[in-house]
Computed example of a mutant assay.
Amino acid sequence: MQNENLPTEELKKFGIINEDLSFSKKLNADDIQKFLQGYTIVADKDKNRATFQLTENNTKLKVIFLERDKSMSEILEKSKEKIQYSETSAQYNFNDNRHSAQLGFSKQAFVFDKETNTIKELDFIKNAPELTKLVTERKNPEEIDRYRLELEKLKSFLQDKLEQYPEIAMRITNDLNIVSREIDSVNSIAPDEKQIAKENNSDVQLNVNDRDLYEDANRNREEQEEQSEEQEKSRKFRR
C-alpha cells in the first residue's frame, strides 16, 4: 500500500484533505487509517449519498453518487420507534457497464439503541448474520415479520438481476444464497418464541456521516461522474 502517491487534488476537491495535505478534522485517526486501507468514507445528506474509496494502491479516488429511497432525517427519526429499512441506488449509469449496475444497489436496516442513543446501519448482505440475530433476539413478532418481508423483497430483486445480468451470475447467486439463508433462519424460529410479548429494546450505534463532505462531493459531481465512467471502463471495481 502506498500513501505517498495519494490523489491529493481529488482529495482536496472533496474536502477529505486540506491544502496543507493534512486530513480533514471531520475524520478521526481511525477513519483515516481505515480509509488508507481501502475502507469507504460515506457522506449522507437528505436522500443523497456519496462514497469515497482509494483504489489502485491508493493512487486513485473512486467516488460514487447514490440516492436513497428515504431521507436520512426521516430514517433517523422513525428508527427511534422501530427498525427502518432503506435502499440506495446509483444516481447515474456507468455507460451500461453491467458489473457497475449491479453494484449500484444496496439495502440497509437502521436500528436505534435507547441505552446509548445511537443508530447503526447494517447492510442486508455484508452484515446479514448480525442483522438477523439482532431482529430475532427482540422476539417481536411484528418486527420479525417485517424483516422477513424485506428479505423476500430483496430475494425477488436479486432473482430478477440474475436473469438480467447472467455474466455476473456467480456474484448474484452468492448474494441470493446469503439472503435465502437468512430467510431460513427467520423461518426456523419456533412459534412460541414468536408469540413472546413485544419489546421495544434495540441494539445499535451509527456512524452518521458528515453532511459537508457530501456537499463538497456534490459540487464536483459532474466532473467526477465522467472520471468514474472512464475508470469503470478499464477495470472491475470491488465495493
Rank of each mutant, 00 (worst) to 15 (best):
G104H: 02
I125D: 01
K47A: 06
P141G: 06
S86V: 05
F157N: 06
Y165N: 09
S73D: 14
Q108Y: 13
R171C: 04
K120G: 15
N117L: 11
L151I: 08
P166A: 03
E142I: 12
D175T: 08
S86T: 09
Q159H: 12
E67F: 04
G104F: 03
Y85T: 01
L131P: 00
D96Y: 13
K155T: 15
K139M: 13
K62H: 09
Q102P: 03
L176R: 04
S100H: 14
I64Y: 04
D96G: 11
R146W: 02
N93P: 10
I144Q: 00
K80V: 04
L122Q: 03
I172Y: 01
S89M: 11
E77C: 10
T59G: 04
K60S: 07
L162K: 05
E163W: 08
N58F: 13
L103S: 09
S100P: 05
R98I: 15
Q53D: 09
D175R: 14
I64C: 07
S180P: 05
L162G: 07
N93F: 13
S100K: 08
L61W: 01
Q91D: 13
V179L: 03
D46T: 10
E74L: 08
N48K: 08
A90Y: 14
L176M: 13
T118V: 08
F94V: 15
E143K: 02
K78S: 14
H99D: 15
S71D: 14
K80P: 05
L176G: 03
T88M: 09
M170S: 13
L122W: 01
Q84S: 05
N174L: 11
K126L: 09
I172V: 11
E67L: 05
K114T: 13
K80D: 05
G104L: 03
N97E: 11
F52K: 02
Q91S: 15
N57H: 14
M170Q: 07
K139I: 08
L154W: 05
K78E: 12
F65G: 04
T118A: 07
K70A: 04
S100Q: 15
L103I: 14
N57W: 09
E137R: 15
E167N: 08
A109D: 01
D69G: 05
K47F: 11
S106L: 10
S71V: 10
K78M: 14
L154M: 14
S100R: 08
A50Y: 03
S79I: 00
D145A: 11
A128C: 13
A169Y: 09
K133E: 15
T136D: 06
K78T: 10
T51W: 02
P129W: 05
D96V: 11
V111G: 00
K155C: 12
D69R: 02
K133F: 14
E81F: 03
I172N: 01
Y165T: 10
K139D: 08
Q108D: 11
N127T: 03
R138E: 00
E67Q: 12
L176D: 01
T118K: 10
L176T: 02
D46W: 06
N93V: 15
D96L: 10
T51Q: 07
K139E: 10
P166F: 06
N48I: 04
K82A: 04
K70C: 09
A50K: 02
L61I: 15
S180Y: 11
Q159E: 15
F65V: 10
E142H: 07
D113S: 12
I172L: 07
Q108C: 02
K60Q: 14
L54V: 13
